[in-house]
Design a protein around this nucleic acid. Structure first.
Lengths: 245, 245
DNA sequence: ACTCTAAATTTGTCCGGACATATTCCACAT
DNA sequence: ATGTGGAATATGTCCGGACAAATTTAGAGT
């Protein structure tokens, strides 16, 4: 699966090539990559393009460049992608806005025992369930699969969620930071369900992070909605910073 | 404190300027930064330098660039510099004090590739490694297995850790709350290693939560020690509450 | 064998230009 | 109003060149 797309820019083609060679063990830690000049001559490209290719590789964190010295291999495996520190509701929503949510399904369901436990509800309750994939912006790489649950409350939000065309817009309006009192968040470890694995291009039964969030209103008593997100652990982890006092 | 250093490159000076303006609230989320052309004209620079400046800003994660559209503000605070308050270090230590840590092993080890990646160190480095089981005080059921890593620093802490009889006391003293500046915490999902599974009576290869904590000193530059805890997901999850700022 | 210096190497910064591609905007037709 | 198409705008890719700054290498001298 090198690349079907011929439309990839030169620097990216060359960059990907070296990234793969590093990951495949053709370069060891400490080894030097070709210099800009060597890349120019070998690939018949301008120095600018060679530099862009090396920058592309550097951005993965696999190599390091030092003026006067060259480009050296730092690691031979992809560093884990770490999600940005989320410390407040604002951070959470900003993170949501910085990524793209692609709706996959919209249903009204009767909660199974398992689902009910997850979202602290009762088995057999009727809930609106949305499912979707969260992507990096302008990148096809999926971040996670997210289910959104909402207890029907016979209001305009219900109507908006049930209609696929307005569902995302409705979610964004509902999760406005000045409508939210608090968010309870529970993180645990599960095995990637096959259904989700297929949709986000991950491996079934591999370790996965499951983050469940309960969004409460300003009064902190009513649950606005509940989300369940499943992240492949190979690519993502959850980081926080704690300060004394 | 604009810059005493006149040796900063143009793109960086301009980039820093806009980063500060974003952090100071001069731009809101969704606002557009000047276009490349506008930067060129305003600062009398080439398009290349303008692009480098915008790339410099983009690398902070504060803005996003889209072809044909422009440069838009994604967030107005530095992802790493936020003051999140998910729980305090005190809470963490309190929990630690309320449980019993039973030392299982004490060694000086050369870090494997995997271990080095975990604790952000270099492969082959010498580290003091402690392993132990954390119990509830009135319950024999183990909570988690914890590894503690410390880079030898030729001080009394080293000596204390290496001696089994004083190791636990030394850990408690070292992690005294008024010696700690911050704790960075990373949570991910793994499969329960067989070695750990046996010791805490869990199932091998079942989903597990792995929490890695980096304890920094008051200056927030030196790592005092690193801990890695493995929890069986069937029994434990990690919960936090987020509030609006 | 060693040190110091100068040259060569390599990346960093900055300028100029050209065309490609994605988005936005507006006039025009429906 | 609606939407369709093309112009204007904005970023992306790629080329050429020049000099600066850091590092490495090689050589001269002791």
């Amino acid at each position: 699966m090198t690349n079907i797309k011929t439309s990839m820019p030169k620097y990216q083609i060359i960059g990907e090539q070296f990234i793969n060679r590093i990951l495949n063990g053709e370069f060891s830690v400490g080894d030097s990559l070709p210099t800009e000049k060597e890349l120019c001559e070998h690939f018949k490209i301008s120095r600018h393009t060679a530099r862009e290719a090396l920058r592309y590789i550097t951005n993965t964190g696999l190599v390091e460049r030092r003026q006067g010295s060259g480009t050296n291999v730092l690691r031979t495996s992809m560093p884990e992608a770490i999600n940005p520190f989320i410390g407040s509701v604002q951070d959470l929503l900003q993170h949501g806005n910085a990524t793209i949510f692609k709706l996959d399904k919209s249903d009204v369901v009767l909660l199974t025992q398992q689902q009910a436990e997850l979202i602290n509800a009762n088995q057999g309750d009727t809930y609106i369930q949305l499912g979707g994939i969260r992507h990096e912006p302008h990148d096809k790489k999926p971040i996670c699969y997210t289910y959104i649950y909402r207890k029907p409350q016979q209001d305009h939000v219900d109507v908006g969620l049930k209609d696929i065309t307005s569902a995302i817009k409705t979610i964004k309006e509902t999760l406005d930071s000045n409508k939210i009192g608090k968010v309870e968040q529970t993180i645990t470890s599960i095995l990637m369900p096959e259904l989700v694995a297929n949709k986000i291009g991950s491996e079934s039964n591999s370790p996965a992070l499951q983050i469940i969030r309960h969004y409460y209103d300003k009064g902190q008593t009513n649950i606005i909605l509940v989300s369940e997100s499943i992240y492949p652990a190979k690519r993502f982890s959850y980081s926080t910073v704690l300060f004394p006092e």
